[in-house]
Simulated scan of single mutants.
Amino acid sequence: MTQYAIVTDLERCVGCLACMTACKMANDVPIGSFWNKVMRIGPNPKYEGAISPDVEMYFLPVGCQHCEDPECVKVCPTGASRKLEDGTVQIDKSKCIGCQFCAMACPYGVRYLNEEERVVEKCTLCEQKIAQGELPQCVINCGGRARWFGDLEKGIENFEAYDEPKSLEGGLSYEDMCKSRARLGDYLEDFDESQVYALPNVGNEPAFRYILRKHTWQGEEE
């Protein structure tokens, strides 16, 4: 089964908020609401009793994790929240009654009620783009190549982002560049399985992954 997701190399993320801003613009997310929010983790002591400058921190982008067994789908009384064959979790607005059961069930607090439309919204993983072979907007706009998109079933080393312009032949248009791809396994600094993390799992099996090599992961996992 396909399970689309995003992998983020947290040591390449500088907290520039480009992914967050691009997401709001591309999806017309209302002021005060977010489909993708970048959190600062830390500063935390590098060892027990440590004080500045022996501290560390990293930035953690958090949005819908498009879980393999999503709690939001289980509690939806109308079937508006559903999991598709590509692994993404989507909301059928024509069925949503705005009860917000899904928002209360989400372990990550990434759903909100659109007050104007009276329906719940969240990250769609840019379904309209990936259906046409494009990448999610947050991946497109990540200048540090920290965010990568792909199918977990094919291994995160095969996740993709747009290639860097400097690595392409000159004279290419923006459209040509968008057709190019860089592969995570060929691009990022080496990592092993113990350095790949997910947000806390409460039985929902979050699909997104985070790579962290030189810092201490602060999230607890089952």
Rank of each mutant, 00 (worst) to 15 (best):
P45R: 10
I51E: 12
A146I: 00
K83G: 08
G15L: 04
R145N: 14
A182E: 04
P53C: 06
E160K: 13
V120A: 05
L10W: 05
E160V: 15
D54N: 15
L113W: 08
E189M: 15
A146W: 01
R82V: 05
M25N: 13
Y58C: 01
R145Q: 15
V110D: 02
C64E: 00
D151C: 05
C13N: 05
N201G: 12
S167Q: 08
C76A: 01
V110P: 02
I156K: 08
S194I: 05
L199F: 02
R181H: 09
G63W: 01
Q65G: 06
Q65H: 12
P206E: 15
E127A: 07
M104S: 06
K179H: 01
I51C: 06
G155H: 13
I130F: 07
I140K: 13
C19L: 06
C96G: 06
R213L: 13
G171P: 14
L84W: 04
D163T: 08
K83L: 10
E56H: 11
Y108T: 04
V89D: 00
Y47W: 13
I6D: 01
T216L: 00
E221A: 13
E68N: 14
P53T: 06
D92G: 04
G144E: 11
V196T: 14
E169V: 14
G98D: 07
R181E: 10
K83W: 05
Y210I: 09
C72Q: 03
A26M: 12
D192A: 02
E220D: 03
Y4H: 13
M39K: 04
L168P: 03
E175C: 00
Q195K: 14
C99L: 10
Y174S: 11
L168T: 05
A103I: 09
Q3Y: 10
N36M: 10
C123H: 04
I51K: 12
K122I: 02
A146R: 01
A22V: 12
I91N: 02
D192F: 02
S81K: 03
K166W: 00
F159R: 09
G49H: 14
I51R: 12
S33L: 07
D54F: 15
V62M: 04
I6W: 00
E48L: 15
A103Y: 06
C96N: 06
H215P: 03
A103H: 08
R147D: 07
D176L: 07
Y47P: 01
K154G: 10
E160H: 07
C23A: 10
P200Q: 03
S94Q: 11
M25L: 14
K122P: 00
L184C: 01
G15Q: 04
D151S: 08
E157F: 11
T2A: 13
I156Q: 09
Q100I: 08
G203R: 07
R111N: 07
V202P: 05
P77K: 09
R183F: 00
A22W: 12
A26N: 14
N114W: 02
Q65C: 07
Q195M: 12
G79A: 04
Q100Y: 07
Y58R: 01
Q132V: 07
